[in-house]
């Protein structure tokens, strides 16, 4: 496992379209970080830059201690689960799982196997180890019975499991998930979400997960990275992001139903700053009062508040 460090990571496409702008993020070893945001916010592009599927226009990307900006994706020790599963349709589930392992074996091994008896024995041991890893991954994900089937004969949930299995067998430093559950129905999505959470707990692996589904993000992530317009809006624990949104976008994006914004005026109530909302006075929490640069009194504001935080008061 390894940490992932993004410093000022940017992506500008030919033609000048900026998809990602100056993303700074430290993913700790073994952490589950979820990139969340609306469509087109740059979360998938960020993930694809980490995977090596998109060139990095500016900034630094480190996996562990290694700077990997110029390292091809296959040499970054990352495994990715795609939204469309990306299973090889002509291969059985077993062959799909073994595919990344076989590709990583020394090239030309088959020729050498013919030439040397010692090598033949080593290659047989390697084959056995490979088969064991495939079997173990299949057991972990409960797909042992499907090993000889082709992807076309699997349901959506089963395909998703195979896709996760293909990442799992490689034992990569970092797992990358690009909206892996978005093609599943609601019930299966909840099941798979729980399974992914269990998998993360069991492996203790570093995982970077992209979704536009905030419920998924809130339940899965150790930390959330909320993005909009290619810029990180807030990075924090799900509780932090929910209770203390950094800005109005985050406040409006996170939570169902989303946060309310009421027109308000900043006033003084018994010597302490408060908000006047349609004639009702709302005392600001102490943390707001202690702000060194409190907004000027009398200025029109928007008072954010979640419906669940409201309490019925006594009339008058």
């Amino acid at each position: 496992m390894a940490s992932v460090s993004l410093k000022g990571l940017s992506k500008v496409y030919p033609g000048g379209v900026t998809a990602v702008q100056g993303v700074d993020l430290e993913v700790r070893d073994g952490e589950f970080v979820v990139l969340v945001g609306p469509s087109g916010c740059g979360k998938s592009t960020t993930l694809r830059m980490v995977a090596g599927l998109e060139e990095i226009s500016a900034g630094e990307l480190r996996i562990g201690e290694r700077l990997v900006n110029e390292v091809p994706g296959r040499d970054r020790d990352v495994a990715m689960v795609f939204q469309s599963y990306a299973l090889y349709p002509h291969l059985s589930v077993r062959q799909n799982l073994a595919f990344p392992l076989e590709r990583r074996r020394a090239h030309g091994s088959k020729l050498l196997r013919l030439a040397s008896a010692g090598y033949r024995a080593a290659a047989r041991a390697e084959d056995a180890a490979l088969a064991a890893r495939v079997d173990e991954a299949a057991r972990t994900l409960g797909i042992t019975a499907l090993l000889e089937r082709k992807p076309g004969a699997l349901s959506g949930g089963q395909r998703q499991r195979v896709a996760v299995g293909r990442a799992l067998v490689r034992e990569p430093a970092v797992f990358l998930f690009d909206e892996p559950l978005s093609n599943l129905d609601a019930k299966l999505r909840v099941e798979m979400r729980a399974e992914l959470a269990r998998l993360h707990q069991r492996l203790g692996a570093t995982m970077l997960y992209v979704t536009h589904d905030q419920e998924e993000a809130m339940t899965l992530g150790d930390r959330l990275v909320v993005m909009e317009g290619g810029v990180v809006q807030q990075c924090g624990t799900p509780r932090d992001v929910y209770d203390r949104p950094a800005n109005r976008f985050v406040a409006g994006f996170v939570g169902t139903p989303s946060m309310n914004f009421l027109p308000a005026t900043l006033v003084e109530d018994a010597g302490a700053p408060a908000l006047d909302v349609h004639g009702a006075r709302l005392a600001l929490p102490p943390s707001s009062r202690a702000r060194p640069r409190a907004p000027r009194r009398g200025r029109a504001r928007r008072a954010p508040g979640r419906a669940r935080a409201l309490r019925r008061g006594r009339p008058g």
């Binding site: 995977a51 090596g52 599927l53 091809p72 994706g73 296959r74 990352v78 495994a79 990715m80 795609f82 939204q83 469309s84 990306a86 090889y88 595919f99 990344p100 590709r103 990583r104 293909r166 490689r170």
Partner: peptide, 13 residues
Amino acid sequence: PESLVEAARLDGC
């Protein structure tokens, strides 16, 4: 699908 090619490349091809 592009993702199939991308998956293969990440798998070491």
